[in-house]
Each structure stands twice: as C-alpha cells, then as structure tokens.
Design a protein around this nucleic acid. Structure first.
Length: 443
RNA sequence: GGAGAGGUGUCCGAGUGGUCGAAGGAGGCGGUCUUGAAAACCGUUGAGCCAUUGUGUUCCGGGGGUUCGAAUCCCUCCCUCUCCGCCA
C-alpha cells in the first residue's frame, strides 16, 4: 500500500511515478474523500471531548443532588451524532482503502517505465552451451530417462501437474537441498511453513486483491458465498476460508504482522521451501511445457526484513547470492532489471535471474528478487523502533531458487550424446548420483 | 469432533458500569550510592489518529449491540489452554 500522505504531499509526483507502470492514476477523488474524512474526525473528536467531559462530571453532580436528566438528554443527542458521523467516516475510509489497495507500489527512480520490452539486461554469465551432437529438449530427456511422469500426473491431478520419479525426484530434491544449505550458510534462517494460510496473508504480501483469482482457495464454512476467489473485503476481514499458498513469500511477508521488531534484531533473513500452488487461469501451455509452468511447483524462497535505509544494499546482496547459486550449477544465465510494468504489484524494483533453456531458445526466470520497500509492511503494520520513534521496515523477497524451472535447464545443459545426463558436481552430495543413464527408468 | 477455561501494556498480572491508558510486579532506560559490579533507593518506560503542539481523540483479541457513560453487561467471530475422542 502506498502512503496516502505521500500522495497528498505531491499528487503530481505520485501520478508521474505510477504512470511508469501503466495508465495514469487520478487522485482528486481520493484526496477529496480524505479531506472529508479529516473533517469528520475533527468534528467527532470535538463531540467526544464534550461527552467525556460531561461523563466525568455526572457522578459528582449526582452526588451533589443535582438533576442530571437534562445532561442525559443532551448526551443522548451527542451520542447519536457521533454514531452518525462515524458511519459516514467508515464509508469514506472503506472507499479510500479500496482505492489505495488496488494501487501497485511506486517504482524506484532508476526503474524504467513501460512494459517488459523495456527490461534491461544488466549482465550475463557464461555462454549458451555448444553441442557436438543433436541435443534433446528437457521433455524428451525427462521422459526417456523416466524422470518425470506427466501423463500420470495429469491422470491423478489434472493438466499442469506432474510426478517426479526415481532419479528425477532425487535430482529435484537435490536441487532443493542444495539451495537450502547454501542459503543457510549465507545466514538465512530456514522456515518450514504452513501451505494453507488465511487470506489475510495474501493481502499483506500484496497478492490480493489483484491476484485473488490465481490463488486456490479452500471452500469456506457454511457462511461462505461459495465463490472461489478472494475479495478485498474478505481478505481485510480475514473472515473466509484458507488459501493454498502461491509462494512462500505470502507467508513470510505476514509472519511479523502487527509487530514492532526490535531494531537490534534486524535484518531478519528467512529462507523457506514450499510447493507453490497457482491456478494460472487463462494461461495456455503451448510455450511453457514440461515443468516450466504448472499448478504446483517447487521454490526455495528468501525473505528479508530490514531497516529502511538498508534495503538497497539488501537487494543487491540477495541478487548476488541467488546468482551464485545458479553460477555454481554451471548454468548460463542473465540478470535483468525489470521495467516498471513488468514488476509485481508490491515491488518497487525487481531483478530477475533467467537461465537459458536451449530447446526453448529463451531465458526463463528462476529467481525474481524484489525490494518492496514499505509496501508490504504498511499493509501488515510491520515496524521497528528507531531513534525517532517507530518506522515501517522494508521487506525484500527473492527466489533462491525456483527448482522446477531449474531442472529443465540442468537436464539440457548436462545431457550427453548417449542420451544420459551428468549430474553437476555441487548436486552429487545431495542425491548420491553422478550420472543418469538411459534405460534405467522405463514404464 | 465433544466439554470446560481464558484472551488486558515488552512480559507476568489486578481490575466486573463512571476521573482506567489502566494497580502491582518483572524487564528496559536514566540517576543516587560504589574503586567497579551487585543490592537498595529515586525517576522514567505502549501504539495510532486529528490538530499542529492540545485539560484533544482512539485503542484492554476482531466486529456489532445496550447505556448519558464499557476493559467491565449482551451478541457474534477468531485464537489459546485443559480434559475426552481420533490420528501420522
């Protein structure tokens, strides 16, 4: 959520900043609502002051034998008036909140405007692997080596689900454990999280209301309206059923909700491994075959809570760390800074790490690192106590890494002319395999 | 799933209709004392909002109600704990 005071201070600057993401936003209406809201507050505070004053006198006057009936009459009116004005105010506050909630974060100054065509490649590492044989794509490899069973995954769960099996499962787990151990070594605290959380979490992380329809939601109790998407109101009230997390960021962003984190315990660096569940509504998987895009995939996530003046450095550190994970797997990748329109709603700035998938002829995201500044912490009221009172902390997230996207790149990169795949050095301790050879896992 | 108890400030804990933002204790911070430390003693120590600096206002799990007035009464939801049942 953006700070309304910041908008009010300079609506033109706010509009210009947000215009980098898309259509221009107009603020007259919300600022008018806010003016009305303040007037109401001033008025009701005055009335309350009067009521409090009288209330405190009533016992004494009664004691003195005074007739307090007239005061009761007056106060009944005052009470009614306060109630009426409060109702008006809550209507305005709801409108203001709904307006602010649907606004994405303000992009950093150094973030380019426009859509993904304006993404800027910062640097790349290594090169596209040359093959002295006819390379296979990851689907063929996964199938011929019996690593992933798409057919049976679809049979038991539907399109977009798959089953890792045998060496494939070992390799996927090795990737996961490789990432975890490296993250822990880098000072991140490992968290194993609930996969089923309340909708409020999605609100704090900024995935709602915008992405409510991409999230799986459990049928709520009898009081549910039966819908399977999450509305803003419901998320704000926290009154509905649980959701299946679309990423562990959803949980990690919410764990310190309504807390004031002691400054000397910052930064908080967390790492989590969870499957990610996404409806991917409307996406047709012509391009994204295999395990590139599915309804359930694996991701190891990094998350940090930092003092406001530390978030720039923290983002740079997270990108470098995530890069080192890909680098040590020996995969060709590039790092891009996303244009404003391609950043997620909560992000002020995002850098993606994309690995080269030869058969697709494209780079696919395996890590996305974002500085959300105080966008999430404002929603979740996550603060720290500084020298000059409390301040919202900054939050950052980065994949470290999306293993389900990594595996295809790995298979293609390390395939051999004989159709087998060599397991990269760094993964061997985690799976006990040096090589995967054809003919081992048929059927 | 059934029965009961409870949710108060950083923590523990009192408060069951009126000057309670809230006793008392612990912890933190500052000070006195001390060569230093401990102990003792004194002081201090929540977060919002509006206004802009006020004898202002809100907040005692969330929401609603009763009342001139609610932490205190009523309704409802959430959560925690105990016992029983079930279970990896």
């Amino acid at each position: 959520m953006i700070d309304l005071n910041w908008i009010r201070a300079d609506p033109e600057r706010a509009a210009a900043a947000l215009a980098k993401r898309g259509p221009r936003t107009e603020f007259h209406q919300v600022l008018a609502w806010d003016d009305q809201r303040r007037e109401l507050i001033t008025e009701t505070d005055r009335l309350r002051a009067r009521r409090n004053e009288v209330s405190s006198q009533i016992p004494r006057r009664k004691q003195g034998g005074e007739d307090v009936q007239p005061l009761f009459e007056e106060m009944r009116g005052v009470g009614q008036r306060i109630k009426t004005l409060d109702e008006d105010r809550s209507v305005l506050e709801r409108r203001i909140r709904e307006f602010l909630e649907q606004l994405p974060n303000v992009p950093d100054d150094d973030v380019a405007g426009g859509g993904k065509e304006h993404n800027r490649v910062l640097h790349a590492w290594s090169e596209q692997p040359p093959y002295d044989f006819d390379p296979r794509d990851h689907l063929t490899l996964a199938d011929s080596l019996g690593l992933i069973d798409f057919e049976r995954g679809a049979k038991v769960a539907g399109s977009g689900f798959w089953i890792y099996r045998g060496a494939g499962a070992l390799l996927e787990m090795a990737l996961i454990n490789y990432c975890i151990s490296r993250n822990v070594a880098a000072g991140y605290e490992l968290m194993l999280l609930p996969h089923l959380v309340n909708a409020q979490c999605g609100y704090v992380s900024g995935q709602f209301p915008k992405f409510g329809q991409d999230v799986y939601r459990l049928a709520a109790g009898q009081d549910s309206d039966g819908g399977d998407t999450v509305s803003t109101a419901e998320a704000a009230e926290g009154s509905d059923g649980q959701i299946l997390i679309p990423t562990s960021e959803t949980v990690l962003a919410a764990i310190h909700q309504d807390e004031i984190i002691a400054a000397d315990t910052l930064p908080r660096k967390y790492c989590a491994f969870t499957p990610c569940y996404r409806r991917e509504a409307g996406s047709y998987r012509s391009h994204d075959r295999g395990t590139i895009r599915g309804h359930q995939f694996h991701k190891v996530e990094l998350f940090q809570y930092v003092a406001p003046d530390q978030s720039d450095a923290a983002l740079a550190g997270m990108v470098e760390h995530a890069e080192s994970l890909v680098r040590d797997l020996g995969l060709h990748y590039r790092v891009s800074q996303l244009a404003a329109g391609d950043c997620s709603a909560a992000a002020a700035k995002t850098c993606d790490i994309e690995v080269w998938i030869p058969s697709m002829g494209s780079y696919e995201e395996v890590s996305s690192a974002s500085n959300t500044r105080d966008y999430q912490s404002r929603r979740g009221r996550i603060r720290t106590r500084g020298a000059s009172g409390t301040a919202l902390v900054h939050t950052l997230n980065a994949s470290g890494l999306a293993t389900s996207r990594l595996l295809p790149a790995l298979l293609e990169r390390y395939q051999r002319a004989d159709g087998g795949v060599t397991v990269p050095e760094v993964l061997r301790p985690f799976c006990g395999l040096e090589s995967i050879t054809p003919g081992a896992g048929a059927g």
